[in-house]
Amino acid sequence: MIPRGFEYFAPRALNEAVSLLQQLGPDAKILSGGQSLIPMMKLRLASPPYIVDINRIPDLNYVSEANGSLRIGALVRESDLEISPLVGSGYRLLADTTKVIADPLVRNQATVCGNLAHGDPANDHPATMLALEATIVAISPRGEREISIRDFFTGLFSTALQPDEILKEIRVPTPPPRSGGAYLKMERKVGDYATAGVAVQITLDEAGVCQRAGVGLTNVSFIPLKAAKVEDFLKGKPLDAAAIKQASEIAAAESQPMDDIRGSADYKRDLVRVLTARALKQAIDRAKGGA
């Protein structure tokens, strides 16, 4: 349970980290929270020869609102989001999500950006960020670029990030009035990956008609799944019981789960149906100003 040897770098500035990555090439791995990377290294499922620890870079630990979006810096820990009043009041879907990731000790160390950069469809933030239509800011020797979350996940454990790019920031559009979101996850135990999870973010108009809907699904596909059919279905509809029921059935059909130790594919599909309905109800309540 001891990782293979590696060379360790702890740059003190972002540009230093960027040039290190360029210099070390594609075998280098970035260490932020390390709560996925280090266990993998201990089990020797990953043995990077170079580790670039970005934890000493100043000014990457911020959660703030600017220019119509919430900005989450690369070193923001899950527990920072958990206690952030800004997130708690304005971004309920995000607050829901961060509370159910791993366990409190892991959340004290794990970063939000790392949760995305890992590209694991079993992680929770991917579905949430898909529902929220987030934007990823990456930095490299070529400068900064923005990546839409829709284009970010490219395969199992792979993302649009280039080997010399660092995920610097996540931008979440500030929801307009009459918006609400919720994340529901079924896990067998604290700290386990989701058997299935559903992230929902909606915006209603004054009449209660759905103007915008974002739905992401956790751990029911190889790539974090944006439930586009559900989103299309919801848009322009009054969200009554019948619409919720139908949307949850579309979500179940859209999911692509597999049999594993957490349950059969059928069970997980059914779980997606149940969780989608509940998450939608909760998101609607919240959009209408309820809890």
Binding site: Y8, L31, G34, Q35, I38, P39, K42, S79, P104, L105, V106, N108, Q109
Partner: peptide, 9 residues
């Protein structure tokens, strides 16, 4: 902050 010392270098 409480963290797991087995998951840190």
């Amino acid at each position: 902050r409480a963290v797991k010392s087995c998951t840190m270098f």
